Computed example of a mutant assay.
Amino acid sequence: MQVDLMALYRRWGRPDIGVDSLAEWLCFAFALPSGEKFTLQREAYNPPTPGFLLSVTNTLFSAEAARHLVKALDIPEACIIELSSEVAS
């Protein structure tokens, strides 16, 4: 997903920070009223692209759901730039 880090800061506040054996990660986590969850995450210091990885629960794993999640972020310039080949149309 293409979305500006500072736009996320302004709209949703500071991200959570996670660390694993590969890197430190910026993570914005969201829960929908239905109970479904999704996150936006990217490597903190040397991201390979300026975008974020959108990670979702199974019921949100579709192109249609991704479009709804982008809209729910309420950041006009946010957009999906690539979908996994496993995502249902």
Rank of each mutant, 00 (worst) to 15 (best):
V3L: 06
V3R: 01
D4I: 02
L5K: 10
L5M: 06
L5D: 04
M6I: 08
A7C: 07
L8T: 09
Y9R: 15
Y9A: 00
R10L: 11
R10S: 08
W12G: 05
R14Y: 15
D16L: 14
G18H: 14
V19C: 07
V19D: 09
D20S: 13
S21I: 09
A23P: 00
W25C: 05
C27D: 05
F28M: 09
A29K: 15
F30E: 07
F30L: 06
L32R: 15
L32Y: 01
P33F: 04
G35K: 03
G35W: 00
E36H: 14
T39M: 10
L40M: 12
A44S: 14
Y45S: 13
Y45C: 03
P48D: 11
P48Q: 09
P48G: 06
T49G: 00
F52G: 02
L53W: 08
L54H: 07
L54V: 08
T59M: 07
F61C: 03
A63S: 14
A63K: 12
E64W: 04
E64G: 06
A65S: 14
A66M: 08
L69E: 07
V70K: 01
K71M: 08
D74I: 03
E77M: 06
A78L: 01
A78P: 05
C79Y: 02
I81C: 09
E82D: 13
L83A: 05
E86F: 08
E86S: 11
A88P: 00
A88V: 11
S89V: 03
